[in-house]
Simulated scan of single mutants.
Amino acid sequence: MNAVAPRLAGRSTAPDSARLGRMAIAALQAELACAPKPGLVTPFDSGSHDDMDAGTFLRSLFALRHYFTAVARDGAAEAPFHRLRDHGLAAEAAMLRATGGVNTHRGAIFSLGLLVAASASCRTRLGRAATGEQVCQAVCQWADAFATSPLDVNSPGQRARARHGVPGVREQAAAGYPLLRGLALPALRHALAAGLPREAALAHTLMHLVAEVEDLNLLHRGGVAGLRWAQQQARGFLDAGGAFAAGWRPRLQDIGDAFVARRLSPGGSADLLACSVFLLLQEQA
């Protein structure tokens, strides 16, 4: 990490912004490629979704390729939050055009966009790459702006948030993403350090998230009963050893089949998984 600092000092941030943008897209590609994932789109099936598949996701990613570079550039320049929000709104419109109106990455546009901007901001202030935890905490600098930015109260996630009285991604961001700092990053680091292949480590980390996150996608699709059932399935998988246990893949596939039968999809947890991958990638460059 220290070797990065001399390359950052006293030069344009444009190359680093482009690099961070590519890492964000790579993180979303890694989340998509991970399989099996309960109820979620993979390269092999559409999970619990009738309106999207892997091709839909790839079209969305192509449309978003410049967004993450733009927010990194503004994050490095310490631009005001409204600049980041404008980029996000434009990215959402580009996503919907590319997918024919299907929401593939709205959550990632918000959370991953903020983390990319925060990573770039940290590099400006520190002169080096920051830890994933430092990047999460840096998002708190925009907390006051979150409180005054308008919400789409008609979105499925916001309707579920209001109906069930649970915090959403905005509250997570304002608190510096405690679920990433305290759960996802430690789980992913441990799995990789213990020698799990990347796909297994990602699946293992995803199930940690499903077990704990008050996932608005699950609440929207299955209500409180659906959310609690999904969390119970994830905890059972982890209690049996998770991806460290022999035969984990068919066992997770069986859980995924049960998710599909109930039309459940932990999309909020998937967004946080992609954020975790990005946070580790940005530590290394």
Rank of each mutant, 00 (worst) to 15 (best):
N2G: 11
N2K: 02
V4G: 10
A5I: 03
A5R: 13
A5Q: 10
R7N: 03
R7W: 13
L8C: 11
L8K: 05
L8R: 12
L8V: 06
G10D: 10
G10A: 14
R11L: 06
R11M: 11
R11W: 01
A14V: 13
P15F: 03
P15Q: 07
P15V: 10
A18K: 12
R19T: 14
L20F: 12
L20W: 06
G21V: 11
G21M: 05
G21N: 09
R22D: 11
M23H: 12
M23N: 07
M23V: 01
I25Q: 00
A26V: 00
A26P: 03
L28C: 13
L28P: 01
E31W: 05
C34P: 01
A35H: 12
P36K: 15
P38L: 03
G39M: 06
G39P: 14
L40F: 04
V41P: 11
T42W: 11
T42C: 11
F44V: 00
F44R: 15
F44Y: 14
D45M: 00
D45K: 06
D45Y: 00
G47I: 01
S48P: 03
H49V: 09
D50K: 08
D50P: 00
D51G: 05
D53W: 03
D53P: 04
G55K: 00
F57L: 11
F57C: 09
L58E: 09
L58S: 08
L61Y: 03
F62E: 15
